[in-house]
């Protein structure tokens, strides 16, 4: 069973063995509204945790998606680039943005699990 971890910037990373799938959280997609544009990083790019990695835009806002963990980009979701509305429909599923090969699994410990993220959301607003 895969685990999902969250950042305070509302990215998620779904851990699948030595790899992680990155996207924006359900909360983030709701806040953003209709996503009209999504751009994933190029395959092969080395990311450090916290680097701006991808971009998602609504009509009135542009948001950076920061890498939740370090690693090399090994795949991007071209489907979501063509149909950015997938992020609104299924942020944690078909709305994923890119997949990285994790370079430091220890970093994941700093991220929030589902329950911690839910608590964190309650502290906002």
């Amino acid at each position: 069973m895969s685990q999902v971890r969250y950042t305070k910037d509302h990215e998620y990373i779904r851990i699948e063995g030595a790899e992680g799938v990155v996207g924006i959280s359900e909360h983030a997609q709701q806040q953003l509204g209709d996503v009209v544009f999504a751009e994933a990083p190029p395959v092969g790019k080395m990311l450090k945790a916290g680097d701006p990695a991808a971009v998602v835009e609504s009509v009135k806002a542009a948001s950076d998606v920061f890498a939740p963990a370090s690693g090399e980009v090994i795949a991007v979701n071209s489907e979501v680039e063509a149909t950015p509305g997938l992020i609104n429909e299924d942020a944690l599923g078909r709305g994923w943005l890119f997949r990285i090969k994790l370079s430091d699994a220890a970093e994941l410990a700093k991220l929030m699990n589902e329950a911690a993220y839910a608590d964190y959301l309650k502290t906002l607003d």
């Binding site: 544009f37 009509v59 009135k60 806002a61």
Partner: peptide
């Protein structure tokens, strides 16, 4: 007016 996320009032 569209693709406004390129512009200064948003970005």
């Amino acid at each position: 007016l569209t693709l406004s996320t390129r512009e200064q009032h948003i970005r």
